[in-house]
Design a protein around this nucleic acid. Structure first.
Length: 832
RNA sequence: GCUGGUGUAGCCCAAGCGGCAGAGGCAGCUGACUUAAAAUCAGCCCAGUGGGGGUUCGAGUCCCUCCACCAGCACCA
């Protein structure tokens, strides 16, 4: 054994052994309990960063610990390999996206191996591989067949110079991030997935995801944004037609004094035509539509369109306004305005001198008077000025008024969602081709199953301008219509890369399956993912899309339903969202120049130190502030551990069985420490996911016995046995965190089998029993004394002994004792 | 503005149920070892828990209120 800890030699040795022995490859074993541990797969950007190190270390700790617990652990890794950086590299450096991506994967794979992560590398997948994305093309066609995928026009950010669509993140101050020309909105035909059809199921699923952080569920619920209310129709005044509005407050309909329309609403121009307002409306509409969304969000502007409608309940004539704050994309793009009970309407009414009409009086408060209100009253209360509904409570009125509207034919109950259908078209090269063709005669025709996959052609040119490289590849674009055989054009858009990450966790269960996307047996055995770990930045998009895809794939019979009957299918039973890695108070980024390169860490300190630091420095869900000194501390601990074991190596590998006879108090104390540490680490790792405190407990443990490990074994055979037990337990408990050094030291102290195959220790309840307990004596809540007692001492006895303490007597000073209270094992409280 | 989170020692962080504020790490100080330094070892110092109020024998923990910072959403009718 080396006298000095050399992380590189140790790590290379064990990594080579795990690879040679295929230690972490798994297969279905129906007789054994399974555990599916998954970390969000990386985008192959070039190198791993500290966020990956943290994420994957957390996952590896869990995977390794569950293996030692006897679970058959699936712990796969792969590459989210499509995306724009690859295309940008092609434009900027002339590297083909495929080559660039392949090289990055090779480098990052080596980095991950050097970290010692226990992946089943046999299951590695890359989403840019046609054997992967072909299944996605099939899912899409199946969705198309069921009406879950459809095409519609929608507004996109368009750069004229680059001839391409830009994602919102690529628009900076209204300008293209690359060529700085002004970005404009453009109506484009785009493909959409009908995620809104699953809104209720997605929402219902949130209620049973008790293994998810509440924070993420709150975000998802809000993102889905279900609002229950009514649709009411307001007839136009003096002409045919009506305006449908959605409202969550049908109880306030008698208080509606005008109606607001989005400037994009078709009725705006139509109603203004021929009125005195026509020019003003046209100018207003043009101005608002030219505004950037952020600018538009600033003001509450509006203009009268020159027409009126009728309140269906009161028959009152209400002016119609075009207003900048009304969104065409939500509800019907029209709002009934109730200024007394909606703050926006209140402000708008004030600005335009519109009528206020109070219809809700709060209960238990002085009556409101519209003339003296400085803000809308948005709460509930009793209806006033609402005809036959006067006196009803708002909640009751909502139902009664909606029913009445339905009975009289101008309304119905309605539910609205904030969630929009998922636009999946990207005018990009490096993505999954959308498998349809456009035929002049037949329209949109799906590529037949036997012609899949539509392979992304490799011979594209990347100029950065002139639109998608795919559209310029004649041999790709020109094809025969699968239906009529005539000339047709291929779709040249590709899928949003969130598509690939929506089902990769399913494919991992049988990644080599060639005949189908999934193996039913494998899905049934492995799913759901027992622990998913990733950054909280994916709280809505990825995690919502993946949940959606799982439900769709179930409905398409691509996967068996692994849930109990009547239970919503969910892919991720438990979710851990780890915080960011911060340095100097900011997220690590190239532009801030505060990046720490994992390669440097591994070279200088070794992978085990990098792992230990990223686990120890903060609890997983919290941001981790980078500290060079913290890394030193982690490294120091491992060196210290090495020295302790090296010192006692001559006898630590020997027999650990205890001799007959009674052990000393010191021996019992160390044994208690060992087993208490087992309890703490097990609880922290398995139940609380507090890996930092688990490590702290092991450090405390080592501090507790390190000085007992000397070159020569202790004379007391009992002591020798408990020290051997302590050292071996330390290594077993550390195995998930720092597997290389733990394995190395384990083999030095005579571990018969590989550490990774060793069972996680169980605490001996006998060993946990305390010999004596120190109790605190409080007088009027203040600590005044302390004494030792056997754990099973009766309460009367404890009180008597507390009162016997002279310092306690001094505090009592002869006053009568009003009360005594014993907290078993902790304290005696005396109140005088 | 709304929603959620965080606030404990010079710093990172611990304290299932309300019960001695401190487990661990970092930094600092003293000593040992050393020709010296590093490393190592032994020991020591340090806060009353963001502010205010309340409940309680007892509050970091529960309740009310205010403040600061972080994150998400941001005219969703």
């Amino acid at each position: 054994m080396e006298h000095r800890y050399d992380p590189h030699a140790v790590e290379q040795r064990w990594q080579a052994r795990w690879e040679a022995d295929r230690t972490h490859e798994v297969r279905i074993e129906p007789a054994r309990p399974k555990f599916y541990c998954l970390e969000m797969f990386p985008y192959p950007s070039g190198r791993i960063h500290m966020g990956h190190v943290r994420n994957y270390t957390i996952g590896d700790v869990i995977a390794r610990q569950r293996r030692m617990r006897g679970f058959n652990v699936l712990h796969p890794i792969g590459w989210d390999a499509f995306g724009m950086p690859a295309e940008n590299a092609a434009i900027e450096r002339g590297a083909h996206p495929a080559d660039w991506t392949r090289e990055n994967i090779a480098y990052m794979r080596a980095q991950l191996r050097r970290m010692g992560f226990s992946y089943d590398w046999n299951r590695e997948i890359a989403t840019c591989d046609p054997t992967y994305y072909r299944w996605e093309q099939r899912f899409f066609l199946a969705m198309l067949e069921r009406g879950l995928a459809y095409r519609k026009k929608s507004l996109v950010n368009w750069c004229e110079r680059c001839q391409t669509v830009l994602a919102n993140e690529q628009v900076e101050d209204g300008k293209c991030w690359r060529c700085e020309s002004v970005v404009r909105e453009r109506d484009l035909e785009q493909w959409f997935l009908r995620i809104t059809a699953y809104a209720d199921e997605l929402l219902a699923g949130c209620d049973r995801l008790d293994g998810w952080p509440e924070k993420v569920l709150v975000m998802q619920r809000h993102w889905i944004g279900r609002s229950v209310g009514a649709e009411l129709r307001f007839a136009l005044d003096g002409r045919a037609g009506e305006i449908g509005v959605f409202t969550t407050r049908p109880d306030t309909v008698f208080g509606a004094t005008f109606v607001s329309l989005a400037v994009e609403h078709p009725l705006v121009a139509e109603l203004a035509r021929g009125t005195a307002q026509e020019a003003a409306v046209a100018a207003f509409t043009r101005r608002v539509r030219a505004q950037a969304p952020e600018e538009r969000a600033e003001g509450k502007e509006g203009v009268f369109v020159g027409a009126y409608c009728r309140n269906p309940f009161t028959g009152e004539r209400l002016p119609i306004y075009a207003a900048s704050f009304v969104l065409m994309a939500y509800g019907s793009g029209a709002v009934m305005a109730v200024p007394c009970h909606d703050q926006r309407d209140f402000e708008f009414a004030a600005a335009h001198g519109l009528t206020l009409k109070l219809v809700i009086q709060p209960e238990g408060a002085p009556p409101l008077d519209p003339a003296r209100m400085s803000a809308a009253y948005e709460g509930s209360g009793r209806l006033v000025g609402s005809g036959e509904f006067d006196g009803l409570a708002s909640d009751e009125a909502k139902i009664r008024i909606t029913d009445a509207a339905a009975a009289r034919g101008f309304g119905r109950p309605a539910t609205q969602y904030r969630l929009r259908d998922w636009g999946v078209s990207r005018q990009r090269y490096w993505g999954t081709p959308i498998p349809v063709v456009h035929c002049g005669a037949c329209g949109i025709v799906p590529v037949p199953d036997e012609a899949l996959p539509v392979v992304l052609p490799i011979d594209a040119e990347f100029t950065g301008s002139g639109g998608s490289p795919l559209a310029k590849l004649e041999h790709f674009v020109h094809t025969a219509c699968p239906r009529c055989g005539g000339a047709a054009r291929r779709e040249t858009d590709t899928f949003d890369t969130f598509m690939e990450s929506s089902w990769y966790f399913l494919r991992y269960t049988a990644p080599h399956e060639a005949a189908r996307a999934f193996s039913g047996d494998a899905i049934r055995y492995w799913l759901p993912v027992d622990q998913y770990i990733g950054g909280v930045e994916h709280a809505v998009l990825h995690l919502l899309y993946a949940r959606f895809f799982t439900k769709v794939l179930r409905d398409l019979d691509e996967i068996p339903d692994w849930e109990a009957p009547g239970t919503t299918i969910e892919p991720f039973a438990n979710l851990l969202t780890q915080g960011m890695v911060i340095k100097d108070g900011a997220k690590m980024s190239k532009s801030k120049g505060n990046v720490v390169d994992p390669d440097y860490l591994v070279e200088r300190y070794g992978a085990d130190t990098a792992r230990l630091f990223s686990i120890f420095a903060a609890p997983p869900e919290r941001d981790l502030e980078w500290s060079d000194q913290g890394v030193e501390g982690a490294s120091r601990f491992l060196h210290r551990l090495w020295r302790v074991v090296a010192r006692g190596r001559g006898w630590l590998c020997g027999d650990a069985s205890a001799p007959p006879g009674a052990p000393s108090t010191a021996v019992r104390a160390l044994r208690r420490l060992t087993h208490r540490t087992i309890v703490r680490v097990t609880e922290d790792v398995e139940r609380r996911s507090h890996f930092n405190t688990a490590v702290a407990a092991v450090m405390e443990f080592v501090n507790g016995y390190a000085e007992l490990v000397q070159d020569e074994p202790p004379a007391d055979a009992h002591l020798r046995a408990v020290i051997v037990e302590a050292v071996r337990t330390t290594l077993v408990l550390l195995a998930p965190f720092v597997p290389h050094i733990a394995s190395e030291l384990w083999s030095e102290v005579g571990g018969a089998q590989p550490l990774a195959a060793t069972a996680w220790p169980e605490a001996d309840p006998q060993a946990l029993v305390e010999d004596v307990i120190e109790l605190v004596v409080q007088v009027n809540g203040k600590v005044r004394g302390r004494f030792n007692a056997a754990p099973d001492t009766a309460e009367d006895e404890l009180v008597a002994r507390a009162l016997a303490d002279p310092k306690v007597q001094m505090q009592i000073a002869g006053k009568p004792i009003r009360r005594t209270h014993v907290v078993p094992g902790r304290l005696v409280s005396i109140v005088v």
